[in-house]
């Protein structure tokens, strides 16, 4: 299996057969603290890749850099062959590379449905002048609304559609943010801890949903601390520690990698790499 994803051995920074995102020498320093220092990494297209690592490893910062929400001190990266360094965040999103946030950003004082519609692209009514003439955007709006309603149903938020997003629970906000990101119809969706705070019953259906995204041809890159979930749905796992990529590989092999165990145990001793849970679960 791994031979179909990576070219050659699964070492940190290994080349992929069909990469969608390639990053080179991406470095971000906060004062004296090097938060991210990624020499080379490739994300395989059409698969689900997990980005794991201890707290403070630089995962969120790396997401921020790749999506234009933060500027690196140096580095280059391409998405589908297009150079992205220096491209503003909204343009990155328009190209089809959309991310969610670790600290959920629901738009509280607008309704759940309006949150969803905001994710839609190419709505002509978003231009100031065309906004004044409803017939110019009404049809798009109807199509967008139908698509949003369908997604909300899949995420079990349909009953909340007309409520303010502020009235959602923390887990529901995570779901809304993910659903909203999908409204943009991305090619690569980057989820920063999508399952944090979502109850186990729903987690299961979300896992199915993420697999569904893959079947629709989307590439998924997600950050997650729950190793159980990582094992469950990812095709490939990339491990970060202290800003660097320290290991890569298919989930089962990566979990056995001494560098990974080191990175985790070195950071906090009580961490659970999911092996135990897995054993108990089966």
């Amino acid at each position: 299996m791994p031979s179909q994803i990576a070219i050659g051995a699964a070492v940190p920074g290994c080349a992929k057969v069909d990469p969608i995102l390639i990053a080179d020498n991406v470095r971000r320093q906060f004062g004296g603290n090097v938060a991210v220092d990624v020499e080379h990494v490739e994300i395989p297209r059409g698969l689900i890749t997990a980005l794991i690592g201890p707290n403070g490893a630089g995962k969120t910062t790396f997401f921020n850099l790749l999506t234009g929400f933060d500027q690196p001190n140096s580095g280059d990266w391409t998405f589908d062959g297009v150079k992205l360094a220096g491209v503003p965040a909204f343009k990155v999103a328009r190209m089809g590379m959309v991310r969610t946030f670790q600290l959920t950003k629901s738009l509280n004082m607008i309704t759940v449905m309006e949150n969803m519609r905001l994710g839609a692209q190419k709505q002509p009514g978003e231009s100031l002048l065309r906004a004044l003439i409803k017939p110019l955007w009404k049809r798009n709006e109807d199509a967008i609304t139908a698509r949003a309603a369908e997604l909300l149903t899949r995420f079990k938020l349909d009953a909340k559609s007309d409520d303010f997003a502020a009235s959602l629970s923390g887990g529901q906000r995570k779901l809304l943010e993910m659903a909203r990101a999908l409204m943009t119809q991305p090619r690569l969706v980057m989820l920063d801890e999508p399952m944090a705070g979502v109850n186990p019953a729903l987690t299961q259906s979300l896992l199915e949903h993420i697999r569904g995204l893959k079947n629709e041809g989307m590439t998924v890159l997600f950050v997650e601390h729950d190793m159980h979930m990582v094992r469950n749905i990812s095709d490939w796992v990339i491990v970060m520690a202290e800003g660097k990529i320290v290991a890569e590989g298919p989930p089962n092999e990566v979990m056995k990698n001494p560098a990974v165990i080191d990175a985790y145990l070195g950071a906090h001793h009580d961490s659970d790499l999911g092996t135990e849970k897995q054993a108990k679960g089966n």
Partner: peptide, 8 residues
């Protein structure tokens, strides 16, 4: 930032 992440 949320709005930015949606391509606006």
């Amino acid at each position: 930032d949320a709005v930015r992440s949606l391509g606006k």
